[in-house]
Design a protein around this nucleic acid. Sequence first.
DNA 1: CCTGACTGAATGACCGTTCATTCATCGGAG
DNA 2: CTCCGATGAATGAACGGTCATTCAGTCAGG
Lengths: 239, 239
Amino acid sequence: MTVHSSEARAGRASADPDRAAKRERILDAAERVFAQRGFYAAKVADIAREAGVADGTIYLYFKNKDDLLICLFESRMERVIQILGDAVAGATGPRAQLRAFVAAYLTLIADQPTAAEVLTIELRQSTKFMREYSPQRFGELLRILATVIAAGQATGDFTDQVPAPHAARMIFGMLDEMALAWLLGRAPRRRGQKPASPLATGRERGKMPAPHGTDFDISRAADWVAALVTTGLERRSPA
Amino acid sequence: MTVHSSEARAGRASADPDRAAKRERILDAAERVFAQRGFYAAKVADIAREAGVADGTIYLYFKNKDDLLICLFESRMERVIQILGDAVAGATGPRAQLRAFVAAYLTLIADQPTAAEVLTIELRQSTKFMREYSPQRFGELLRILATVIAAGQATGDFTDQVPAPHAARMIFGMLDEMALAWLLGRAPRRRGQKPASPLATGRERGKMPAPHGTDFDISRAADWVAALVTTGLERRSPA
DNA sequence: CCTGACTGAATGACCGTTCATTCATCGGAG
DNA sequence: CTCCGATGAATGAACGGTCATTCAGTCAGG
């Protein structure tokens, strides 16, 4: 399908650019389906339908369902790291860089909620695996942050009470939790199908509108995170 | 179908205490198996064997596999909340209470790594579901923390730049991430069986000893978290 | 004997994966 | 330019393996 004018040329030419596009179509579909149903509940057939291809076609592009998840992770994570790296590079001085990182991360979540949902929620279904499987990507993200902090410690802007790598981990934890809270607090489910949750196979409980009433402006979260990270909770000077 | 937990009473004399004990045996077994294999990869038969009962027996105590996970969650989470509540109650003043909470949480992780693994890692396999399903328990935990913070804000010990509930979330995120890092950084796998990870069905990569070389004294983590939370990264006074 | 807790082999549904087949496209021969 | 066989991407029905769940028995205690 599609292949109109362009590809023509040198015989097999259609293979490369077209192939990549279809691969991307499948990844996009997988992203949507995983986000909606969760990895384990997502059927390969669902993804195929969503991508508009046959079940078997998926196996021409990916080794198996696991491979699909891994490739999706790699693809999206690369994008994330790119953006965060740019954000940091675009700021000057540890404080500004730290703030830029935080803001960029949360903006990313807000802008790409579907991708974020997969990275933040569904991939956790195999966090243990993912972090064992591709510590690089995830470590890369932490390293960007740790580098900023270490730099700040070197210049004396930041205290060195907390080792930079651990500080980075904690900050990531804060961001991750805020992202999670925000993602779960949005309009609950999308389409008509079964309510997605991997476990909900059994009964269907009346879906509560939002987990706790958790629903907030995520851009404000950046300020909260930045405030907590830089100045902490304690009042600086007595009242 | 199946009994509703507490109903029994009258009927069989031995029924109640005995029954509860066996139920607990199954829960313990499930905890171990889930921690080792992950929820989806864990077979009901594995849990039965681990508990020393027949497959069918599990269904005399739990409605189904999902129910088993839910009950496990409820059981362990109750314990956690109890302990954290006590820790806070045992300290005086917002700062001390905050520190007590942090220390108690991480101590819990260190003392009960198996339970922690289930709550922190494997339950995440269905975070979306769990948090939708039982927001109470999880919210309870956050509320303990938020209450401490709000109290501190009221007394003027803490800044109110960050709304207490969100501050609580962020702190929990930090703790969670540190717990995760520590749990994943320990001696990788236990028994002989397949390497547990739900996804690793495919190839088997030479298991790296530890994700990044992440391995640290978790009790020290309490200090880091407390430091970051209370005073932040920025140096208080110029160098 | 009853009773009912317990057993574990048997059942059946479900889904990832395969593969025989289809068909659009292409290049060379006439 | 047209025709023809080759090519391999795409298809989707069917396969096979894996478990969760069931239930017809077993048996110990009363």
